[in-house]
Structure formats: C-alpha cells, structure tokens
Design a binder for these strands. Structure first.
Lengths: 229, 229
DNA sequence: GTCTATAGTGCGATAGAC
DNA sequence: GTCTATCGCACTATAGAC
C-alpha cells in the first residue's frame, strides 16, 4: 500500500470515528441532528488541534477557538461540557484510530521480517496523516486527568508490546538476533515518535515519510542483524 | 568517569551557572546581595521545574510557585519582570550547561569509536542529572518567543551536528559504515531524548542510566557495523 | 441550534507598608 | 528585601433572546 492509498483509507476511518464520538457522547452534546453535529465536531476538533499545535491546549482560550472555528462560545458549549472534556474526546478518538489501523494493517502478517517492516511503515504513515493529533496527544499528555492518563499509557505500552512480540518471534525463528527485545522495541518507538515530534527538522531537510521509513527499517535491520534479501 | 563522579561535576557547574544568571540579569533582578539572590534564584528555578514537570509551565500559576517556594508574589517579582522572562532564564542556562559539559567531556577525544561512546554516555548522564530541566525545555519549547525559539533550535542542531561529524569521521577512516550520517545522527538523538522524555517507562522497568547507555551504544554500533573489540 | 451578554473566578502584575 | 492588599483583565461557563 502506497502512502497515498493509506491516506485515503485513514481519512475515511477518521470520518467514521467522528460519527462514533457523536454517538457515544450524546449525553454531553446538546445537538440532536447527526449531520449538523458531525460537521461542527469535525470543525471543532481540527481547529483545536491546529491552535494547540501552535501554542498548546492550555494557552489556547475558548475565545481563540470560537474565533478560529467561526462558532460562538455558546455554540461550542453545545458540543462539550468543559474544556477538559474536549481534550479527553480528542485524545480518546486518536487512540482508537491508532489501534484500529495498526491491527488492520499489521495483524494478519505472519513473517516477522515483513511484519516488522509493515509495523514501522504503518506507524509512520499513520502519524504522518494524523500528525496534528499525535503531536497534540504527545504534548498534552500531562494535562489530562488520571483516568485518561492511564489510558494513554496503556495505549503507548500496547504499541510497544506489538514490537516486542515481533522481535521475540523473529529471534525465536532465528531471523533476528535480539538480546533485549524490550529495550529494542523502546528505541524503535523513539525513532517513530521523532518523525512527528521533530517534524520541523525533517521537513526542513526535505525528508519524505517513505525516505524516513526506508532509513529506519534499514537501521533496525542492521542492528538486529537481518540478512539482506 | 562514573555516573556519580559526573553527577558531582555537573552539580558544581550548575551552581556556577546560577551565579552567572544573577550577574547577567541584574537589570531585571532587584536584589543586590549576591548570596541572597543566588539562594532564592536556585529555589525559584528548582520549584518552577518541579511544578512545570507536573502540570506544565502555562498551567502553573505564579500563586502556585509562590506557595511551593515559600516566597511571596512580591518577592518573586524581585527576581524577574514577567512570567515569560522566568521561562527564558531557565531555558538559557540549561542550554549553556549542555554546551559546556558536552565540549568538556567529548571535545578532546579523537578516535571516532571512543568519541561516539563518550558522546552518547555523556548526553545520557547529563539528561539524567538535569532530567527536570531537559523535560521542561523539551515540553515548553513552543511557548517561548521567536528569539528564544531560534536559540533552542540552534542548540538542538548543534548537538546533532556533533554526532554527524563523529559519524562522518568514522566512515572516512573506515571504522563505521554510515550511508546517511544526517538521518543516523537524527535517530541517535531520538534515542537519547527518549531517556528523559519517557522516564516513567524506564524507571518502571528499573533500567539504570548505565544499562540504557550500554544498550544504545551497542545498538548504534551494530547498525553502523563497528567491529566488536 | 446558534447567538449575545454577562456572571463569577483566578490570573499576572504592582503599590506601598514594614 | 519581603510582605499583604489590590487593580484590571481575560478566562471558563451559563442564561436567555432569537
């Protein structure tokens, strides 16, 4: 799957997820017509991500959000009961997209070498498409309540566990040589995070997501001593 | 140099740097007696770092800082002219310590293999000792003004350039095999950053800074194909 | 369903007593 | 050199008109 194909697929999933948010938060959302609600929610989320990525969620006031989204303060409060709840809604749906897409794209692969490559590339594609959400989620992690924080940690460790499993499977089959799968998975994850956290750096250097993916895959394979095909 | 020796040295440098801040910011600082000023500045900085690491600099109010540091609001404003200036002062001095210590510990080494190892270990030791500052600096980078932001970027790229130089030198001498020194340096840096950004993860797994350093050095050396001694 | 107007709170910053 | 008291402002959140 090329990056452009991936992008289309992720966009469709994103729309579905916005609809899910609406349905699951109907107790907080005063608007009853789904078409109106989903349209405005999408607007609110993307504007929040844009503003928060510029100056942080705490620094962004709801007046800023009102001005940029074109919705009044009163209208905004028809979609959430507090600023904190808005943050939680956005975080939750991003986590959900991560889990769905990683499972769909990687879950069925059995060969550890292919699976490692697919996991790295899919993760990078995902964070490229959802760049704003991932950066937001990364930077605002400590501003959420304990319950949400626990979910964020679980989500992070679940992704890391996927890499641990792949590495252990490959080691067992004699395809990789991995002395410490936990630390190896951990540094792999740090390389993947760097793609969206330090995006200014990569974009200044004109590195595409596929270039970065190829490099990271090569780097990891050298380190875990995969024989080149 | 062991971690404990390093720690002592860094602590001494940190005291000197607090004195430097006082001397260079005497226009903003109303207090004239150096002993009093340095003592209170140290208190203000460490309390700010502690609170900001918990909930972010923007979220921390100066009333929080006043309560935790034991200094009144009025007293705080004897040491800086605005909350923003407090942020800038802390950032500046951390950058300075990074530059001084990396140069002192790594600059004189000529063998690329030794130099790579020393650079990785020194960087990890430094971020371990100054964990709160590095996390603060990393998370608050987008909340500072354009001038400070430019300095932060320059500082980051300077550290990365050090790794690029080491890798190119090693490649030239036939000690490493590095196809893309820029991206290689970039992923090395991401692994180093992970140590202080995801500290909760490493500390939960009971990984010491030396264990992490040994692992990262081994991982990089495998990837750039250094023959084991 | 969306708006404007405003209540109520807590902020950064300062003046002036000690 | 440090404190308390307070100013003016911008914020989150809500009530009620349309």
């Amino acid at each position: 799957m090329t990056f452009n194909e991936f992008k289309q697929m992720a966009m469709i999933s994103m729309e579905e997820i916005c609809r899910d948010i609406f349905r699951e938060n109907q107790k907080s959302i005063k608007i009853k017509k789904e078409a109106v609600a989903v349209k405005n929610l999408t607007n609110i989320f993307s504007t929040t991500l844009k503003l928060s990525n510029e100056k942080g969620f705490q620094t962004m006031s709801l007046r800023d959000l009102s001005r940029s989204s074109g919705l009044s303060m009163g209208a905004l409060y028809s979609y959430f009961t507090s600023k904190e709840e808005l943050l939680a809604m956005i975080q939750e749906q991003g986590r959900r997209l991560t889990r769905i897409i990683l499972t769909r794209q990687v879950g069925h692969i059995t060969d550890p070498r292919e699976k490692l490559q697919a996991a790295v590339r899919t993760h990078l594609y995902l964070t490229e498409v959802m760049q704003e959400w991932f950066y937001f989620s990364y930077m605002e992690a400590k501003n959420i309540d304990k319950v949400q924080q626990k979910k964020a940690i679980e989500s992070e460790l679940a992704t890391e566990q996927m890499f641990i499993d792949i590495l252990e499977e490959g080691d067992k089959k004699g395809l990789f040589s991995v002395s410490d799968p936990v630390l190896t998975a951990s540094v792999i994850k740090s390389m993947l995070q760097d793609w969206y956290v330090k995006r200014w750096k990569h974009s200044r250097r004109r590195i595409s997501v596929d270039q970065y993916a190829d490099f990271v895959i090569g780097f990891i394979e050298s380190a875990v001593k995969v024989a080149k095909a």
